[in-house]
């Protein structure tokens, strides 16, 4: 399946991926409104990690052998027909086991109540995830790798 990969040597740490991810997962999907009017503010589902000049965006890897899916006590964390790992928020009870088992720290608590899994959904319905589309230096790519 196509996944989001990062070429960290070209990640410039601008965090535009976070800005556009947040916008995409806001209610209005409008950038200024998402930031200035919507409360609580939506969450970006990927985080840019930085140390010194090295930086890279860290979205969910949609692992083949996903620990979060195996660990989920209700079956909320599941794999869809594309192979993407998604969280069914209806079934999530907020036990946060997925957060603990994710080796990449790619799952976060959602902003609404106790529900857990706010994570990358590969921008379901979009041709290309918005973080990839708006990465100004093509550090993020969306492609099939073997």
């Amino acid at each position: 399946m196509k996944r989001i990969y990062v070429n960290e040597e070209y990640c410039i740490g601008c965090r535009l991926c976070e800005v556009y991810c947040l916008t995409q997962h806001s209610r209005s999907k409008k950038i200024i409104k998402a930031f200035k009017e919507e409360t609580p503010r939506a969450l970006a589902r990927l985080v840019v990690e930085e140390e010194g000049p090295l930086s890279f965006a860290m979205p969910c890897r949609h692992c083949e052998d996903a620990p979060c899916v195996a660990a989920c006590i209700t079956g909320a964390m599941h794999r869809d027909e594309r192979g993407a790992v998604l969280c069914d928020e209806e079934r999530c009870v907020g036990c946060w086991t997925c957060i603990m088992v994710c080796p990449f720290g790619a799952v976060q608590r959602s902003i609404a109540g106790r529900k857990a899994a706010s994570k990358c959904d590969l921008c379901y319905g979009e041709h290309t995830p918005v973080c990839v589309m708006h990465c100004p230096n093509e550090a993020l790519v969306y492609e099939e790798r073997t």
Partner: peptide, 8 residues
């Protein structure tokens, strides 16, 4: 939107 892209 105070996203700080300009700062960085």
């Amino acid at each position: 939107i105070a996203c700080q892209v300009c700062v960085r």
